[in-house]
Structures are given as C-alpha cells and as structure tokens.
C-alpha cells in the first residue's frame, strides 16, 4: 500500500510539472536560449555576410555596367486605380531590349510604391531613343495599349529613365510619362 501511495504521488507530480511547464510557455517564453556568445556570433556573421554581398553587388554593377555607359530604365505606378499593368515592351534605338509580363504580386508591389528596374545596359555617349509600349486593363476593364517615347542624351554619367503610369483624376484615364532622372 505504501508503494502504491508513492506511485500516485509520483504520477501526479509528473503530470503536475508537465502541466506547469506547458502552461508557462503559453504566456511568457522561458524555454532554452542559445548562449549569448553564439547569438552574438550569428548576428555579427549575418552582418558581415550582408556587407560582403553589398560590396559584391556594387562591384558586379561597376564591372558589368560602368557608370560612363550605364543606362537603367525603371517602371513605377502612381496609383493603379485606373490602370492595371499587364506587360511592358522596351525598345532602345529600335532594338527590343526588354519584354516583361507582370504577376499579380509584382503588380501589387508597384501599386504600393515599389519601383521595378526593368532594364540595365550599356550605351555609348550621344543621342538615343527609347520607346516603351505598356499593356494593361484600363477603366471598366478595357484592354489598354499605349506607347511613349523619349530622345535622350547619354553622357559620361549613368542615365536613369523612369516610365510612370499616373491616374489622371480629371480625365479619368491613365497617363503614361517618361522622364530622365539626374
């Protein structure tokens, strides 16, 4: 009988402890933590590797697209209410350099203020022409196709060009602009 009583106590205590440890995890986190030095090491490693990747990214760009020949074309959407961007085609000096079909997620990212780098390439100094054709859904879901172009001068500095879709509240139509950035 004595042994059985002991057994009851043992089992109850085991369950009791299990219940308590399970419960405290629900509210405040008290379980095992990695040692502080390991955590600090992981943090500093991540920081270092991120820096390496940053430097690598910059080197890659400088090597492949030096500033004196670099041309970058970006796409942005100002509101996205009157126009949903489906695709864009880009011609540089009458040569097709980019065709891009947007996923729903990419479209959303643009509508929320993201800017897509559509094209990066090299051009010699002088005058060039860029032509963009944008396809999408306009007001009332109508298919919309619009072209826009720009003649620009490429100098020794990198050239940034932005294709922008803007909702014109006045005309209730989307408008497409293309502009050079300094």
């Amino acid at each position: 009988m004595k042994l059985n009583t002991l057994f009851i106590s043992a089992v109850v205590i085991v369950v009791w402890l299990a219940a308590l440890s399970g419960a405290s995890a629900a509210g405040a986190n008290t379980t095992q933590q990695p040692s502080e030095s390991l955590e600090a090491d992981i943090q500093s490693l991540k920081e270092e590797i991120v820096k390496i990747n940053r430097d690598f990214f910059i080197l890659e760009e400088e090597l492949l697209f030096p500033a004196n020949t670099q041309v970058v074309v970006f796409v942005s959407v100002d509101s996205g209410v009157l126009f949903t961007l489906d695709s864009v085609s880009l011609k540089l000096n009458d040569k097709n350099v980019a065709n891009y079909l947007y996923t729903a997620r990419e479209g959303k990212a643009l509508e929320r203020g993201g800017v897509q780098q559509l094209y990066i390439g090299n051009l010699r100094n002088g005058q060039h022409e860029i032509v963009a054709i944008l396809n999408g859904k306009g007001p009332q879901g109508r298919s919309f196709r619009r072209g826009t172009s720009l003649i620009f001068e490429k100098s020794d500095d990198a050239k940034y060009i932005e294709l922008k879709v803007v909702d014109s509240a006045e005309r209730q139509q989307p408008e497409f602009t293309i502009r050079e950035w300094e």
């Binding site: 991120v50 990747n53 990419e106 959303k108 990212a109 643009l110 993201g114 800017v115 897509q116 950035w181």
Partner: peptide, 26 residues
C-alpha cells in the same frame, strides 16, 4: 502609400513588398 522620391529606395520596396526581404536588404 509611401512617397518614393529616390528610385533605388523604390526598387528596394519593390523587392520588400514581394517578400524578397534579403534582396531588399542588399
């Protein structure tokens, strides 16, 4: 919606909004 005034900030946001957080970080 965030006012994007620097193209490369917008580019990072484009990655971030698609959950490509590591790319956005770089």
């Amino acid at each position: 919606k965030i006012q994007v005034k620097d193209l490369y900030y917008g580019k990072a946001l484009y990655d971030y909004y698609q959950n490509h957080h590591y790319d956005a970080l770089i």
